[in-house]
Design a binder for these strands. Structure first.
Lengths: 246, 246
DNA sequence: CGATAGTTTGATATCCTTCAAAACCTGTGG
DNA sequence: CCACAGGTTTTGAAGGATATCAAACTATCG
């Protein structure tokens, strides 16, 4: 939390990296000034689009995804409150992937001019935004490790641990419990598995009292064992300043 | 190629994004000023290190990798001449992965002060460096797609296509032929497969006259079919300005 | 020329997919 | 409150892709 605390999810998130002063906090909160509700399923950016704005998620979940010619879909990231879709986005001529909402959400859009102005005048905020970009990239690398080196059960455990830590960071957890709006099909598209296999693995994990899922809530009943199964090391989230022992 | 052409691999690479003037080219070439030879296997950065310099690869190959507690290794990126290891690296308190040389190489190190000075005074170069970062991230996403949605044969084909295009971009290809220093074990660590299976798949691809490998050179004997097998779409490399039809 | 790293091959086991059907939710209209 | 529709989850049987283990073979390099 910043010295001047805030319930703005982006302030909470970036505070893991930088101590902000009052003005910094105002600058970040300002990003959320103009926000809109959008329904689940809404596509914020489509592959091929020329990016016009930076999106900032205030409430809800979104994902980055790519659809292959054969129709298969790969989800490459989840966005949760406080996350932005790439602040340097304007450098690209066209998007190489899409971003879609997974739940009804509240989204702010930041114009190119506003983003440039902030990056010119507010070095601490800029540093924090660039740090967030590095963390996104590190997360992507860890997902690659997840796919390459872990089996279905370990992958699942790893994702649960990551999401818990990230939601914790923005204050959206309860005690070992988080909102979990993903369908098993979306989980399958995330992990490179079939929904059938996801179902089997989840059933097994429930039987072993590792987790329970009901009503779109996920309860990590044995966080320690989940971390161990996943060989989960949160270092890649680069949160050490705040939460030395998650 | 830039208006003021250069055989510096970084100039060649970044020219895919930006037209540089003479001074820009000098700034980029200046990064290579102080360079050193290092032997294959040398670890440039180890997981846990506090990053001190930005590394720029001038000759040779390197990889980003992570080693899990159980000893398994995942390779998460290949660096080829012209590639840098993350210009924002100083924002991190410790590295979440290592970078090692895969061949004898020539490497330049750029100090924090030098990098900061360039980013302050040379906007075109800075934009190009940030673009390169975005491309690295996009490549990581494509690798995730590769792992999640493609089988061993398709993954392999995809990697070959990507490496050919990237080496083409810095002028290090021959006609459908590139240097290819990777062992099958390294390929396995890249694709999340066993060396045994990599061997079988490669043997099959050779039998089908898709590729041939001898003396650490890779020949793409049927690039069209490889692209098709991999569903290779180079859009994620964001090279459209230069090579509209690779 | 021998030592060592790298590659190939075979037999068998495991994980995950595929296909198909049934069961279970959840929200909606009557 | 019920019935139904659509999406989601579960279950079973069988097949395919990749792993594992072990051994032989082949480059490469001092």
């Amino acid at each position: 939390m910043s010295l001047f605390s805030s319930d703005n999810p982006m302030v909470r998130k970036l505070s893991a990296f930088e101590d902000f002063d009052e003005q910094d906090v105002r600058v970040i909160e300002d990003f959320s000034e103009v926000s809109r509700h959008h329904p689940s399923g809404k596509i914020l950016i489509e592959e091929g689009d020329r990016p016009e704005n930076v999106f900032l998620l205030l409430e809800g979940w979104a994902c980055r995804y790519k659809i292959l010619p054969d129709g298969n879909r790969q989800i490459m990231a989840f966005l949760i409150p406080g996350d932005v879709c790439d602040i340097q986005i304007f450098l690209l001529k066209s998007m190489d992937h899409g971003i879609a909402l997974l739940t009804d959400s509240v989204v702010a859009e930041i114009s190119k001019t506003k983003m440039n102005a902030v990056m010119k005048d507010h070095s601490r905020v800029t540093r924090a935004l660039l740090w967030a970009t590095l963390v996104d990239e590190a997360t992507l690398r860890e997902w690659l490790v997840n796919m390459g080196q872990r089996n279905a059960r370990e992958r699942m455990a790893h994702l649960f641990c990551e999401l818990y830590v990230r939601l914790f960071q923005v204050g959206l957890n309860r005690e070992h419990e988080i909102r979990f709006p993903l369908t098993q099909e979306q989980l399958a598209d995330t992990m490179g598995l079939t929904p059938v296999h996801v179902s089997r693995v989840l059933t097994k994990m429930r039987d072993e009292e590792l987790i329970s899922i009901k009503g779109r809530m996920l309860h990590l009943r044995d966080f320690e064992r989940l971390k161990q199964i996943a060989q989960f090391d949160p270092n890649y989230l680069h949160l050490d300043r705040r939460h030395p022992n998650l």
